[in-house]
Design a protein around this nucleic acid. Structure first.
Length: 624
RNA sequence: GGUCCUGUAGCUCAACUGGAUAGAGCAACUGCCUUCUAAGCAGUAGGUUUCAGGUUCGAGUCCUGACAGGAUCACCA
């Protein structure tokens, strides 16, 4: 079933689905679709011109003009053969007469502005209230794997990883809300030369140090030795250069590098001593990661380890050779030629028959499909690997994989510091654990300064600091379009005011206070308490329109794999709500019906904020 | 050097996929707490959308070419 199907000529047919929902249920909901349907009819009736509602579009009317939706006339003047003004008048008049929901219109230059009757907005709101599934699409039968995080076990997670993890988690949740079945996967890079580097340095320098004895989390302990390796390695290179060795040669001949390489060979052979050390150190690292993931609030349904998967893919190389997708060079190495697709020739197997990075990624792609029969596979990986995934996906498609079309690289930009790129080896990184702890600490100071924790127990207060600090951090990283690189200045702390997580959380807490009061005085605010309501003020109407937009934004966020769409939307919603809050009274309002409506509207805004923030992995407090 | 990405207010980001006078937040300035939480609201100021051409009724958005920043182009991962 195609997602965009909309049959305007037969709204009686009950079995037509739209976003997995019966069309008939939509009638009060999707005003935009209804308007387009009527505009299509207008073209038919007035100008004898067939045009499908699908090929028409409305846009929100700009604030400075009267109206809710605007229809741009310029593209249709050839059809109407009238001036823009006259065309707009004819269509507007037709709509006012035939489409019950159009209360008024005006034409300015080539723009037809339509005002929707207030009673329709009230009905839209009622249908949102009455719909328990609002913001959750029905299952669409598609299964998607989102791979994210994918850490190396030789160092702790840094700020760049935080962006990766928050993005991967949020995209997964957004896809779920869109009706996908989602499998969150983590591919842990637990083997290879860089892991051996930490191990060599540990063997040489640690004297049996453990996380307990060092008072360090396991991942930080491994990271410490990774940095120590690099220090010693650089020293050794310099010594060799002083003795007259060429720089490139020195890099290869430095004693510790030779040891690391030897250790990798021993590891692959299964040397018990090496494997023991590897298991011990990785075990420490996993304990550290588990703690970090817990603080981050992310989780996984499936964890793959490269130590299990690194040999995969060689059979695909033979398959590719048979199919003529790959070719062999005289030295025995195997290549793929992608020059016809604008890329280069790319190695897929070394001349000694060992795998390269892309070999195992081919194997893992198949493995994921065998394990879960996924329709789509999303890789949340930084944009430095754009080329790699371009090649990988082209190869899998050439090989005719059924999931080939569903492969997607969610490529996100680096997080830069004012000093430039972060480098683990040189210690110029913003550590993830440190940053999260600092955020919570800042939230504590800020909250105490504002004196906002009267009546909180110790535990409640601590939970609030965590909610706010993590909310500020996650929102900061998620509000930006994923593909853009972003700057983080450690000297300026992340804000708690304006377009921030805490601003949205605050809006939720404010509404919670209203709901508590309404419950306390026994005010009804369910769908049935709204009958007889017949007029709205501007901020009320704006809020209803925004609430209605939620599902549209949800869909866009999934199509673009962009949590920023949700973040931006939630800010707009919170902003509009705060305007409403400042302008309009609730409990001092004399008409009980208006009281009920305003509470109901507030509560629905809070619910939407909660839902949306949850997609971003952000909690919202009842009080702050 | 080839390829790809990015360039919007002093700073951080939007702009519904080609539509009206390019919008928010931060920072600056001015108001608003005796009424539901001021982590808020209202207002002032801030722009040749890097530059130059082109496409058309109409361009921040599309095409070409500069300029600037970044990534990548390993028998590394």
């Amino acid at each position: 079933m195609e997602g965009k199907r909309y049959i305007c000529t037969a709204p009686k047919e009950p079995m037509v689905f739209y976003f997995g929902r019966k069309l008939t249920e939509l009638i009060p909901m999707d005003i935009e679709k209804q308007l387009l349907h009527h505009i299509s009819s207008a073209f038919q009736q007035l100008f004898n011109h067939e045009i499908a509602p699908d090929s028409l579009a409305l846009q929100p009317t700009r604030k400075e003009f009267q109206g809710n939706y605007t229809f741009v006339l310029f593209p249709f003047l050839k059809v109407t053969r009238l001036s823009p003004e006259e065309s707009g008048k004819r269509i507007g008049e037709y709509l006012r007469e035939h489409a019950g929901l159009v209360a008024d219109y005006n034409v300015i230059k080539g723009f037809l502005n339509l005002s929707v009757d207030e009673s329709h907005w009230i009905r839209v709101f009622q249908s949102i209230l009455a719909n328990p599934d609002f913001g959750q699409f029905a299952p669409n039968g598609e299964r998607v794997m989102v791979e994210y995080s994918s850490p190396n076990t030789n160092k702790p997670l840094h700020l760049g990883h935080l962006r990766n993890n928050f993005l991967g988690y949020a995209v997964s949740e957004i896809l779920k809300a869109n009706g996908f079945e989602v499998i969150k996967a983590n591919l842990v890079n637990d083997r290879g030369i860089h892991i051996c580097k930490s191990m060599v340095a540990y063997q040489k320098l640690a004297n049996g140090e453990t996380p307990e004895s060092a008072g360090l989390k396991g991942d930080h302990l491994a990271g410490k030795y990774y940095v120590l390796f690099d220090k010693e390695y650089k020293k050794q290179i310099e010594e060799l250069i002083e003795k007259g060795m060429d720089k490139e040669e020195a890099k290869k001949q430095a004693p510790w590098m030779l040891e690391a390489q030897q250790m990798l060979i021993e590891w692959e052979k299964g040397n018990p001593e090496v494997v023991d050390l590897w298991k011990t150190m990785n075990g420490w690292v996993y304990e550290g990661f588990a703690a970090t993931y817990k603080t981050m609030g992310v989780d996984f349904d499936k964890t793959y380890y490269e130590s299990d998967t690194y040999l995969l893919g060689k059979d695909i190389v033979s398959e590719g050779l048979e199919k003529g997708v790959f070719f062999k060079k005289p030295n025995g190495s195997v290549w793929v030629d992608l020059t016809s697709e604008g890329l280069d020739e790319k190695l897929v197997l070394r001349s000694d028959g060992t795998s390269v990075y892309i070999t195992q990624d081919m194997g893992t792609a198949d493995l994921k499909y065998r394990d879960f029969e996924i329709n789509r596979s999303v890789y949340v990986v930084g944009n430095e690997q754009d080329y790699h995934f371009d090649v990988l996906f082209k190869i899998m498609r050439k090989l005719g994989r059924p999931y080939g079309k569903g492969l997607y690289h969610l490529s996100y930009g680096m997080v830069d510091l004012p000093s430039g790129k972060m480098k683990s080896r040189e210690g110029t990184v913003v550590d993830g654990d440190d940053l999260m702890a600092e955020m919570v600490e800042t939230a504590r100071e800020h909250t105490q300064e504002l004196g906002k924790i009267d009546g909180f127990s110790n535990e409640e207060a601590e939970a609030l600091y965590e909610t706010l600090g993590m909310g500020a951090l996650k929102y900061f990283l998620l509000k930006v379009d994923p593909k853009k690189r972003m700057l983080f200045n450690p000297a300026e702390s992340i804000e708690f005011q304006g377009n921030t997580g805490p601003f949205i959380q605050y809006t939720h807490a404010r509404i919670s206070a209203i709901r508590r009061k309404a419950d306390q005085i026994g005010l009804e605010y369910g769908p049935n308490s709204l009958s007889g309501l017949n007029s709205l003020v501007e901020s009320e109407k704006n809020l209803i329109i925004l609430l209605q937009d939620y599902e549209k934004k949800l869909k866009t966020a999934a199509e673009e794999y962009a949590p920023s769409v949700i973040a931006q939307y939630l800010f707009d919603l919170a902003k509009e709500y705060n305007r409403f809050y400042a302008e309009l009274p609730i409990f001092s309002e004399t008409k009980g019906q208006i009281q009920s409506f305003r509470v109901a509207l507030s509560v629905e805004v809070a619910k939407t904020i909660r839902k949306g923030m949850k997609l971003l992995g952000i909690n919202v407090p009842e009080k702050m």
